[in-house]
Design a protein around this nucleic acid. Structure first.
Length: 519
DNA sequence: CGAGTTTGACCTGCGC
DNA sequence: GCGCAGGTCAAACTCG
């Protein structure tokens, strides 16, 4: 039973973390803005209104930001904006009403609105009014600090609970057989801890080990979240609970925690532009592929652990496969945000799914399916040294079949083709590409609802764009990954890499190996 | 001259 | 223990 309850618990914590992270909402706003053409309304469905309110409390951004989702300011910008707004409070004596209105919107809707209007209407002395506003401002700031303290407390509790969770996972029977009943079909999926499960077990062990080593690093999933949301992207969590560089590096260097995300896309260019600076440090001929594999290291910051591999597909040399591994330890330019989100998010998915039980995987499936409506094909592979997720954008849009794979090491495993007859409903095609999940069993039903909400016209538009523009393909891959990484309720992280698409200020997810192949 | 690339050597993990 | 393959290192080289 622990395999059922623990994942639920984990995802509850996960959601909690998401809901209390101000920057998460900010980042999601960016995502929404960036991919408006993909139907932003759909993504907004995944953000709980209460979470948004909480974010607004902390963001202290101006009403303009809340009213307009097209704002490109990141969290820091909002912070500065708040300073500016406060400054305005002192400077604009002649327009008290404006100041008051502004305060109302940034001040938790407490009491100053009506009071300020009353004062303005009564024609009170501007100095008295100013002092009143200042006192109100101080009061609001104190309240804001209190809320931040509450957030800190919750975050700490979350970390501790996750540590306990993974200790509990460690105590689970290693060869326990888990049966997962698919709620949609009532079909029973017998999942035995075979080779693929051993990967999960390994991840669990690693996670537990990490949690034992340092309280700051309770588990892979959390780490993924932490780093994705904070590390490279300056999330609030990082700011509030800063980890030392040494700790981050140590976490990054834990081999088994790595996950790999790869994206296959068609491209004639030798390497996709992902907004980061890379230095080539090696090239090797890989077995079974006449094309050499190039190794790159991120040079945007000293000691950045992120590396990527670029190689053309042996089957189709027009397909470029780019793999990312690790999390950036530095802020990324907007152009690199999308890719970073992609890798981090995908890594988070892999690691969280590995660390938790099948149930969590099931949940993850539902989550990711709901958040990757545009993914062409995502593959989780257990056969690779690292857990690997592959986003394949090379598939023919007309081959719209979603398949769920479980591939035992050494051979192609059972395949669960999901006939996504989306054409009519405009649904399941995910840009017309099949969505694959290897290694982990994902309930097809979970993938359906969101997919079916996808407008066919949108699919056609994006598919056409992909087909015509390799760079767009790369950007889209990053975007997809970013979406994948947005946890239910808008959590999620930032990964590092990529993206020619510009998504300002997105947080980055945890470190794992993300492999992108661009075709 | 510094930054980036090339390329052979070296290290490590894994399977037999 | 040995060989293989993947990954990394570092000296030599190239380029602006």
């Amino acid at each position: 039973m622990p395999t059922l309850t623990i994942p639920i618990y984990f995802f509850f914590l996960f959601s909690l973390c998401i809901s209390i992270s101000p920057n998460t909402y900010m980042d999601n706003r960016h995502h929404h803005r960036e991919f408006t053409f993909l139907s932003s309304a759909h993504f907004l469905d995944h953000i709980d209104p209460p979470s948004i309110k909480e974010m607004d409390f902390f963001s202290t951004s101006s009403p303009r930001d809340h009213k307009n989702n097209t704002s490109s300011r990141d969290t820091n910008d909002d912070h500065y904006q708040n300073r500016d707004d406060q400054h305005d409070t002192h400077d604009r004596h002649g327009s008290p009403t404006r100041v008051i209105d502004h305060r109302v919107n940034t001040g938790l809707n407490l009491t100053c609105a009506s009071a300020g209007v009353t004062k303005a209407e009564n024609g009170e002395n501007p100095e008295t009014e100013l002092s009143s506003l200042e006192s109100e401002l101080l009061r609001l700031q104190e309240e804001n600090n209190k809320l931040r303290n509450v957030l800190d407390h919750i975050t700490k509790s979350y970390t501790q609970l996750q540590a306990q969770l993974f200790i509990a996972l460690q105590n689970l029977p290693q060869n326990m057989e888990t049966k997962i009943v698919d709620p949609g079909t009532s079909r029973k999926l017998d999942v035995v801890n075979d080779a693929s499960v051993s990967d999960e077990k390994t991840d669990q062990d690693v996670s537990v080990s990490r949690s034992n080593n340092a309280e700051a690093c309770p588990d892979a999933a959390e780490d993924v979240l932490d780093r994705s949301s904070s590390q490279s992207w300056g999330s609030s969590k990082l700011e509030e609970q800063p980890k030392t560089t040494a700790e981050q590096l140590a976490a990054d260097q834990i081999p088994l925690r790595k996950a790999r995300v790869s994206v296959r896309a068609r491209s004639e260019a030798p390497m996709i532009s992902d907004g980061c600076q890379w230095r080539k440090y090696g090239q090797k001929m890989a077995k079974g592929n006449p094309c050499p594999r190039a190794y790159y290291r991120c040079t945007m910051a000293v000691g950045c652990p992120v590396r990527k591999q670029v190689q053309r597909s042996a089957d189709d040399k027009t397909v470029l496969i780019t793999s990312y591994e690790g999390n950036h330890n530095h802020p990324l330019p907007p152009a690199a945000t999308a890719m970073a989100n992609t890798t981090s998010a995908a890594a988070a998915m892999l690691l969280s799914g590995s660390a938790a039980s099948k149930e969590s995987l099931t949940n993850s499936a539902g989550y990711y399916s709901s958040t990757i409506p545009y993914a062409s094909m995502a593959t989780l592979s257990a056969s690779a040294p690292f857990p690997t997720i592959t986003l394949d954008l090379t598939q023919n849009p007309n081959n719209a079949a979603m398949q769920l794979h479980r591939v035992p090491p050494g051979h192609g495993g059972a395949t669960f083709p999901l006939p996504l007859h989306a054409a009519a409903s405009g649904g399941p095609h995910l840009l017309g590409h099949p969505l694959f999940f290897q290694q982990k069993l994902l309930p097809p039903q979970a993938l359906m609802p969101l997919l079916q909400r996808q407008p066919s016209s949108m699919v056609e538009t994006v598919s056409a764009a992909i087909a015509s523009d390799p760079n767009f393909t790369a950007a889209l891959a990053a975007a997809i990954s970013s979406i994948i990484g947005v946890p239910r309720g808008g959590n999620d992280g930032n990964n590092n890499n990529s993206g020619s698409g510009a998504i300002p200020g997105s947080p980055q997810l945890p470190q794992s190996c993300t492999t992108f192949s661009t075709n």
